[in-house]
């Protein structure tokens, strides 16, 4: 029992990201309002960002910016231990994912503005009724 509890506590970052991600996925599938779907999409993407960033964390390590290097230039020999700094790679990757998220959000909002212009509503079922009536 304590084993299970300690596993759950040791990996709590994964449980949080999975929960958030599934809330986002649920919103994207089940919600009727197009903007709520976009909100779900953002949650979905943000959960993945959370997941990646949590991979990079290391116990006892600090942010990945080398210390004592201001103004010395590169001729100073400094000894850097990998254990002292967190993993920089996930941060880099997530900068990209954030940008992609913003870009997708922008395009999605632009599309919903176009849809609203045309149908005067953002509820999916109302739009579908309007389309059916036009036929």
């Amino acid at each position: 029992m304590t084993d299970l509890v300690s596993t759950i506590i040791a990996k709590y970052n994964y449980w949080i990201y999975i929960t958030l991600m599934m809330i986002g996925l649920y919103a994207m599938i089940a919600k009727n309002n197009l903007i709520k779907k976009i909100v779900g999409m953002s949650m979905f993407q943000t959960a993945i960002i959370l997941f990646y960033v949590s991979i990079g964390v290391k116990k006892g390590a600090t942010i990945p910016i080398l210390e004592y290097s201001h103004g010395h230039g590169h001729d100073t020999q400094l000894v850097v231990h990998a254990a002292d700094y967190v993993n920089p790679l996930p941060h880099v990757l997530m900068l990209t994912a954030i940008v992609v998220g913003v870009a997708t959000l922008g395009v999605a909002l632009a599309l919903s503005i176009r849809i609203y212009d045309r149908y005067n509503t953002l509820e999916e079922d109302e739009i579908l009724t309007q389309i059916r009536e036009e036929k």
Binding site: M28, I48, A97, S112
Partner: peptide, 23 residues
């Protein structure tokens, strides 16, 4: 626009799943 927005939702889920798999 509506058809594309649906594509965008699905495409984003697809791309995010791929990203998660890479993770």
């Amino acid at each position: 626009p509506l058809a594309t927005l649906n594509y965008l939702y699905m495409g984003t889920i697809g791309a995010c799943f791929y990203l998660l798999g890479v993770g």
